[in-house]
């Protein structure tokens, strides 16, 4: 099997709507928020999020960010849970194919713009790429302090001690930090930031990433960003350093031992297998193996 070439959408931009759905004033407003977010890494910039034709909680923040930065020459990849073919990824990819007429791809290396929910691709990203995260709850302090008026003060004054209380409780109770996804990070030594519900396995990829990382929370109306090559540090204790998940077995399809694995239940007698959650990564490895075998 070979890599599918980027597909140019057959139908041009949907009638009656602007390129990439949003009107240009709205895009400018979002771009201003993005610029501010890039200038203050990790800071949540309020923006006047618009109603989108997709429901809140289904990626409206990411879609608005993508719509604001996408151009006709961009090649778009959309993943959900690491996979290009999950229903919501299909639906969002289709939305942009329809409203922007841009080329789409499943290949990480060919994409210039990647919108994601819950994963960072395994293939290291480069300077010419932008990674857009869909964020449900942008505020990392939300679970300790539900009030926006209070969390805003905590950020302004860098009062982040309470975040360590949660980690302390984990260690006291379980002997280790039990937070497995949405694991809080400190950006550029200043703002506490939620990486969105990606598994902590992906946190190290955020650190000094070559690509620009943009985060959009539509319902909560916040945009934040990590500029290229910015330090992203996962919170931990000196004597309980941050560590990522690992598996006892390799991917059942491609044999990868360094990727995040999904568990697939194969029968009702407890049979299960583990496969790469990043479908592009897995396919690329299998293609390479086939090629080498021939």
């Amino acid at each position: 099997m070979t890599m599918p070439a980027p597909t140019r959408a057959s139908t041009p931009t949907s009638e009656g709507y602007n390129f990439a759905y949003l009107d240009e004033q709205t895009k400018r407003m979002i771009r201003r928020a993005i610029l501010k977010a890039v200038a203050i890494p990790g800071y949540q910039v309020p923006f006047a999020g618009r109603e989108m034709p997709l429901p809140y909680g289904w990626g409206t923040g990411g879609i608005q960010v993508t719509a604001a930065v996408i151009g006709p020459k961009d090649v778009l990849k959309v993943i959900d849970q690491g996979a290009d073919d999950t229903t919501n990824a299909v639906s969002i990819r289709r939305f942009f194919a329809r409203t922007a007429g841009v080329a789409t791809t499943e290949a990480t290396r060919e994409a210039t713009l990647i919108q994601t929910r819950h994963r960072i691709p395994e293939l290291p990203l480069n300077e010419r790429q932008i990674l857009v995260y869909q964020v449900p709850i942008p505020e990392p302090l939300r679970w300790m302090e539900p009030r926006e008026t209070e969390t805003r003060k905590m950020h302004a004054l860098e009062e982040y001690g309470v975040m360590h209380v949660k980690l302390y409780e984990d260690i006291a109770r379980f002997g280790r930090i039990a937070t497995s996804y949405n694991y809080p990070v400190r950006v550029d030594g200043r703002y506490l930031m939620s990486p969105s519900p990606t598994p902590k396995f992906d946190n190290p990829k955020m650190d000094r990433m070559a690509a620009l990382q943009l985060f959009g929370a539509g319902r909560e109306k916040r945009i934040y960003a990590v500029p290229p090559y910015t330090e992203v540090k996962s919170l931990d204790f000196d004597d309980h350093p941050f560590e990522v998940q690992s598996w006892d077995q390799p991917c059942a399809l491609c044999g990868a031992t360094d990727s995040y694995l999904d568990e697939v239940i194969t029968d009702d007698r407890g049979g299960r297998m583990f496969v790469c959650s990043d479908t592009d990564h897995c396919r690329r490895r299998r293609d390479a193996q086939e090629e080498a075998a021939q």
Binding site: P55, Y56, G57, W58, T60, D80, Q81, G82, T86, T87, N88, R117, H118, R119, P136, A178, S180, Y181, N182, P197, T198, P199, K200, F201, R219, Q245, W247, Y260, L261, D262, E263, S277
Partner: peptide, 20 residues
């Protein structure tokens, strides 16, 4: 939207919780 987004796949997060 947010209540119903729970219908979307959460394989990856759930896998993290399972492993833990």
């Amino acid at each position: 939207g947010f209540v119903q987004h729970l219908k979307l796949p959460h394989y990856v997060d759930f896998q993290g919780e399972l492993a833990t």
